[in-house]
């Protein structure tokens, strides 16, 4: 579904060159939920920009689907549109703005508890609801794969747990493939099938862990193996 092969990427500024990613290889299989964790400033967002095709690698190759949905740290809902019109935005841009697609987007919103808010302005929604609307917007154009750039980090702790569980449930039940970058170890363990640990900049893969105990984020957090996995990842990150 997505494959990085020995990918390197450098930023160029007047004052010099910064290697953000160096010799990075990893794979995301269809239907998998993969998290990438790493120390802050290690170039995690660069990896998503590369995966989304917003930037091209300096060297190496990336095999990717053209059809990706990108979910950002901030919900970026357009205030001048109703929630419903926000959901239709990717349809309009990708030329998929047909009555069936709109109907499907609305059905998705209703299924995941946004039904009563469709005609409201985003400013009338709570932070958690806004992020949920952002996810439905990402799903509306029916992308094959989702890229999640720390989508929960702007939320307060309680909302974060709640939305995090919701998002995982929605992505799983819609059978989507997802790549999440985060600096939050427990979030990565709770959500993913596989956790990829990155080194500090320039980023490359230090270790990969398949997580297969329990199934929902809630059960995982309560599972005795959670703490052990957390310790392993914490040591690998060097914190």
């Amino acid at each position: 579904m997505l494959e990085f092969n020995n990918v390197s990427y450098s930023y160029h500024t007047r004052s010099g060159e910064t290697a953000a990613v160096c010799g990075l290889s990893f794979k995301v299989e269809r239907g998998q939920f993969v998290s990438v964790i790493g120390p802050s400033g290690c170039g995690k967002s660069t990896i998503l920009s590369l995966a989304a095709g917003l930037i091209s690698p300096s060297s190496g190759s990336i095999k990717r689907k053209s059809d990706m949905g990108y979910m950002l740290q901030k919900d970026a809902l357009f205030e001048w549109r109703t929630v419903e019109q926000n959901l239709f935005l990717p349809l309009e841009i990708k030329g998929k703005n047909t009555p069936e697609m709109r109907k499907r987007a609305v059905a998705l919103a209703q299924k995941y508890g946004l039904g009563d808010f469709l005609k409201k302005s985003p400013s009338q929604l709570s932070g958690g609801m806004r992020q949920r609307a952002a996810l439905i917007r990402t799903l509306a154009a029916e992308p094959e794969m989702l890229l999640l750039d720390e989508p929960f980090s702007a939320l307060d702790y309680q909302t974060r747990l709640e939305v995090c569980d919701d998002v995982q449930a929605i992505i799983k039940s819609e059978k989507k493939t997802a790549l999440l970058v985060t600096h939050d170890i427990s979030e990565a363990i709770a959500l993913s099938d596989k956790v990829t640990v990155l080194s500090s900049r320039p980023a490359h893969v230090l270790a990969e862990h398949d997580i297969d105990f329990a199934s929902t984020p809630k059960e995982r957090r309560n599972d005795p193996r959670f703490a052990g996995t957390f310790e392993v990842l914490r040591k690998e990150l060097g914190i």
Binding site: A52, Y70, K74, L147
Partner: peptide, 18 residues
């Protein structure tokens, strides 16, 4: 205009005019 919204448009494949 908010940088995040611009990134979002770009990620959705929107051109300059859109």
């Amino acid at each position: 205009v908010d940088e995040t919204k611009l990134t979002l448009m770009k990620a959705m494949g929107a051109g300059k005019l859109t």
